[in-house]
């Protein structure tokens, strides 16, 4: 699918970053307001897919040389590691911990180990959806 639409390409360059920022925002906001790993991951995917539509898959692959299968594996590892970390602290599997910290710039912030798990979810969702789209798209 080769497109050569200057309007689309120019707009995409801007819109992609807006979507990506929104994705990151919605991912971190997920614990308190609507959002989270699933949605954040899907939004990130749409941003990349938009790029792929505006340019073509080889170009996007050159810009983002990510092996999405590895990304999926890393995400799964993240999730499992967070879940099993609790065993080391001798509490049942999957017990999360959180605390409040006073960070510079952010003020009082709560840090939650569930966020780490959510990062795993995020990575898996991005990895899987991108793998699917890329494999199907590349197959001619």
């Amino acid at each position: 699918m080769r497109t050569n639409d200057v309007m689309l390409q120019t707009a995409t360059k801007v819109v992609t970053f807006i979507i990506l920022m929104f994705a990151v925002h919605i991912f971190f906001a997920g614990h308190y307001t609507p959002g989270g790993g699933f949605i954040g991951g899907l939004l990130t995917t749409t941003a990349i897919v938009l790029l792929m539509l505006a340019f073509d898959i080889p170009t996007v692959k050159k810009v983002l040389p990510i092996n999405y299968v590895v990304l999926t594996a890393v995400g799964l590892l993240f999730a499992i590691a967070t879940a099993s970390a609790s065993i080391i602290f001798d509490v049942p599997f999957f017990t999360h911990a959180y605390d409040y910290y006073d960070l510079p710039l952010f003020g009082e912030t709560s840090l939650h180990s569930a966020l780490l798990f959510d990062i795993g979810v995020y990575l898996v969702v991005v990895g899987v959806t991108m793998t699917i789209i890329q494999t199907i798209g590349e197959d001619e």
């Binding site: 997920g30 614990h31 308190y32 307001t33 609507p34 959002g35 989270g36 790993g37 699933f38 299968v69 999926t72 594996a73 995400g75 799964l76 999730a79 499992i80 879940a83 599997f93 999957f94 999360h96 959180y98 709560s110 939650h112 569930a114 798990f117 959510d118 795993g120 979810v121 898996v124 969702v125 990895g127 899987v128 793998t131 699917i132």
Partner: peptide, 29 residues
């Protein structure tokens, strides 16, 4: 310590289910 109940269910209360779910996703891929 969360606000969005749906997301807290996903990552905390029922985190095990989510873990398996993302595993299913990876298997499909």
């Amino acid at each position: 310590a969360g606000g969005n109940i749906v997301n807290v269910i996903l990552v905390d209360y029922r985190g095990f289910d989510t873990l398996f779910e993302i595993a299913v996703l990876a298997i499909a891929a």
